[in-house]
Design a protein around this nucleic acid. Structure first.
Lengths: 108, 108
DNA sequence: GAGACTGTATGGTTTTCATCGAACACTCGC
DNA sequence: GCGAGTGTTCGATGAAAACCATACAGTCTC
């Protein structure tokens, strides 16, 4: 088969514009997800696969958290071979929810 | 006894400056609490007692939600006779979490 | 002080959500 | 194709949180 064709289902994404405010807040209100977002913010786009994030949960839970972040319009994912690399949707999310991401990244 | 003296314990408040980001997000991520905040935002300070808010829960749950909002630095309460009147801590909360309150008030 | 009113505290039920272990699907290198 | 590596799905478990009904504690009016 031609190269570049994946047989794996592409992850479903939701654009920030289609995300209700409360969904975005709930997504960011979890400590594990907040840490994922912060780590992702400190990395280059598409440079980090899911497994490279250092959070104190198993890989099943991690996968679940990434699904929540995707559904909240916070993260975009793309398959690269066996791994799934990530990108924080900074501009799109910030256009939809101005200031929100910055609050989480600033931390305390 | 002199007038103006209450025998009821004053509600405990937390200043927004002492509230972690995730606590603020979690407080606002609940639909009932978001509605309380929105209704409160549309009313004059100290004009609304807890019972006057139209949310689809019993008064016990309502009391609980107000306690959460207080702990998140979103609401200030004061006793006036038998009722407890409320005020949205707009400026203080906005100084601590710029833009966050506006996002919730704007809704969608 | 009796009774109406407002809100809080308590105890218990239900729901929601984070988590894990195990099984599965896909990709890649040998 | 086989085995290692990566991530998702499934089922079950545990903890947290929302909720209710009831009982209680103040405040006010009469």
């Amino acid at each position: 088969m031609a190269t570049g064709t994946s047989h794996r289902a592409a992850p479903e994404h939701t654009h920030p514009d289609d995300v209700p405010v409360l969904t975005a807040l709930a997504a960011l209100a979890d400590p594990v997800r907040a840490q994922l977002v912060r780590e992702l913010a400190g990395s280059e786009d598409w440079s980090r696969s899911c497994g490279t994030f250092d959070v104190p949960v198993g890989k099943a839970a991690k996968s679940h958290h990434f699904a929540v972040l995707r559904a909240a319009g916070l993260v975009e994912q793309r398959d690269e071979g066996p791994r799934r690399v990530n990108r924080l949707r900074r501009e799109e999310f910030d256009a939809r929810f101005p200031g929100l991401l910055e609050l989480v990244l600033r931390g305390d």
